[in-house]
Write a protein that binds this DNA or RNA. Structure first.
Length: 359
DNA sequence: CAGATTTGACCGTC
DNA sequence: GACGGTCAAATCTG
């Protein structure tokens, strides 16, 4: 433990020193007609160093936090299902049953849903709708909620009928901050998307208010690598007090490069300490800016404090995920380095610094 | 024309 | 009876 702290301390210092060194070099080179690529590379190295340093600090911070904050889930009794390793599947079966009853018995309201994930998605512009989450959703209702200023929208999986997928979500614009959308996910995807099947990317733009022709869009897409990239380029995810490797959390795990295995944070170990590679790979190799990625054109995926997200057992009705999507950084030239890429995709020895690699 | 969205009505829960 | 979730006909969109 102590060695670990020392290692982190040294790494922190090294990163700061490295960042400063590169900044100095860049300063010198700004006087010479260096190529823009070289300068970009150096800028990214600087940012990478600071990013690593900050991550270390954040890691320490979250570690201390986790010792003082009681996860919400611990306050609720743990259901027997949650102890057998598949709490959601069982609940979801119940949800399916409910829905099937609805199908047979018209408009019968299902029982209080058990499978829930709640996230917050913010769009700073205030015009853009909730973010692409990798699944195809079809809106089936909208309701004015008494206690809310804005109506709540109801979505269900597009493949509900074709693949018997009963995942649903509710989107509620926050009263306090209209740029924030509270999204509640219910049920687990049993469609091919939920099984992480890679399908040809097919962009579908849907609008909450189709007539408005503004950016109040909700984008839905198959969780392909491309959509993952676009999505990953824009999200800032902040999550506290979350756990359990089984979750209806909507992002298709494999295509996002993180897994929901136990004791695994958002940062795969392979790249945990090599955000620079991640950022470079993301920025230079994985940036197929597609037409539908207008909102997603910036390599700025950031996930903070996700440690423990999947590590704490959750009760079915007490899952709170806080995700903030900051679209204001769409044009930011500064890539964030948090986003994990599957370490298996990148050879650590890959010669990124090969002259002309980025040209 | 197929599929998605809108919206009023229906229904269960509290 | 109020509220919220869902249905389904009408409408819209590509």
């Amino acid at each position: 433990m102590e060695n670990e702290c020392n290692w982190e301390h040294n790494t922190l210092i090294n990163e700061l020193i490295q960042g400063m060194d590169v900044a100095k070099r860049l300063k010198e080179e700004l006087r010479t007609p260096y190529s823009l690529d070289t300068r970009d590379l150096q800028v990214q190295m600087i940012l990478s160093s600071y990013e690593k340093a900050l991550r270390i600090l954040r890691c320490n911070e979250s570690t201390s936090k986790s010792q003082t904050i009681t996860p919400l889930t611990t306050s609720l009794p743990e259901s027997p299902a949650s102890t057998n390793g598949s709490p959601l599947s069982e609940d979801f079966d119940g949800a399916i049953q409910d829905h099937r009853e609805v199908k047979n018995k018209s408009k019968k309201r299902k029982a209080t849903p058990k499978l829930m994930d709640q996230i917050k998605v913010s769009c700073e512009s205030g015009l853009e709708g909730p973010h692409e989450d990798g699944y195809n959703w079809r809106k089936y209702g909208q309701k004015d909620i008494l206690s809310a200023k804005y109506p709540r929208s109801y979505y269900r999986c597009t493949f509900r009928n074709t693949q018997n997928c009963w995942a649903t979500k509710q989107v509620q614009r926050s009263d306090e901050d209209p740029t924030i959308f509270d999204i509640t996910y219910r049920g687990k995807h049993t469609c091919s998307q939920g099984n992480n099947a890679i399908e040809p990317y097919k962009s579908q733009e849907k609008q909450e208010k189709p007539q408005s022709h503004n950016n109040n869009d909700i984008q839905h897409a198959h969780p392909s690598q491309e959509s993952f990239t676009n999505f990953s380029n824009t999200l800032t995810v902040k999550t506290d007090n979350l756990g359990n490797e089984q979750t209806p959390f909507p992002f298709p795990s494999t295509s996002f490069g993180y897994t929901t295995q136990e004791n695994q944070s958002w940062f795969p170990s392979g790249l945990e300490n090599d955000s620079f590679l991640s950022s470079l790979f993301q920025t230079h190799l994985l940036s197929p800016v597609t037409p539908e990625s207008n909102y997603f054109s910036s390599p700025t995926f950031q996930m903070n404090e996700f440690d423990g997200f999947y590590n704490n057992p959750r009760s079915e009705s007490d899952i709170t995920e806080i995700i903030s999507t900051n679209t204001s950084v769409t044009n930011s030239p500064i890539p964030n380095f948090h986003f994990p890429l599957d370490s298996a995709d990148i050879d650590p020895n890959f010669p990124f610094n090969t002259p002309g690699f980025f040209s």
